[in-house]
Design a protein around this nucleic acid. Structure first.
Lengths: 129, 129
DNA sequence: CGGTATCCCAAAAGATACTG
DNA sequence: CAGTATCTTTTGGGATACCG
């Protein structure tokens, strides 16, 4: 039996619904489980930022990747886009409540990285010989 | 100032060390923050599995991607590879303690997905019009 | 300033075939 | 069965140019 990303959704009745839920869960999963998305979420976790500020915060991200990922976050309701109709335009991005909740889990991954930093470093040295 | 993945590592003294730590942290981060790696970790969280079992558990993964990700997990000390010298060969993979710890955080992401399933679904519908 | 579109190269990933 | 190697295709992502 395959791994069920949505194995906790006990409220869903039949197999067909479960499949639908699982397929969406996987989709969200692979949207969000990428380096740029997670780094953007980390950055927005601190405070609301405008496009150009985000470009500076998320080191090495290109214009294109930033817009692409911001659209994705917006589409999934994780970030909110607020346009100030000024000249020049000013666009601000904020995490929504679901976004903040996700951010908390991302923080845990960061915490994990710190905790096992040494383990990983030495495991690598062993493996690379 | 750029986002620091390793912002919690207060034990490190000077800026140069902090940079090294941050660069490794990012590396680990992008190794681990990918769909296949996370799904493999989820699967191995349940129990020890052999290669062919993993191929069935992790739906849609190719032979190549599976070996590639397993090597990566092994290299980082997250999974252990045990070869039984039989004919035909039997190779089993198990999560190490760091791997189990990471798995716990992946579970939280799964939990998050379930919790905000509805939010995300409706956010998408709104956006896609 | 922020966003879209285009072009283009490099990396990711699938398919296939071969080995211990 | 598990793993490696090779080939091909698809995607990711950088650079550039242009619009509101």
């Amino acid at each position: 039996m395959p791994v069920r990303v949505s194995k906790g959704l006990s409220s869903l009745s039949d197999e067909a619904d479960l499949r639908r839920a699982d397929s969406l869960a996987r989709e969200i999963f692979s949207d969000v489980a990428n380096k740029w998305a997670l780094l953007i979420i980390e950055a927005l976790g601190e405070r609301t930022l405008r496009f150009s500020e985000l470009r500076n915060e998320v080191e090495g991200i290109s214009h294109k990747m930033l817009t692409q990922n911001l659209r994705m976050l917006e589409r999934n309701g994780l970030a909110e886009r607020k346009v100030h109709p000024t000249v020049p335009p000013r666009v601000e991005y904020t995490l929504t409540e679901p976004g903040q909740a996700l951010r908390a889990t991302v923080d845990l991954i960061c915490g994990w990285t710190h905790e096992y930093f040494g383990h990983i470093e030495s495991a690598r040295r062993r493996f690379d010989t």
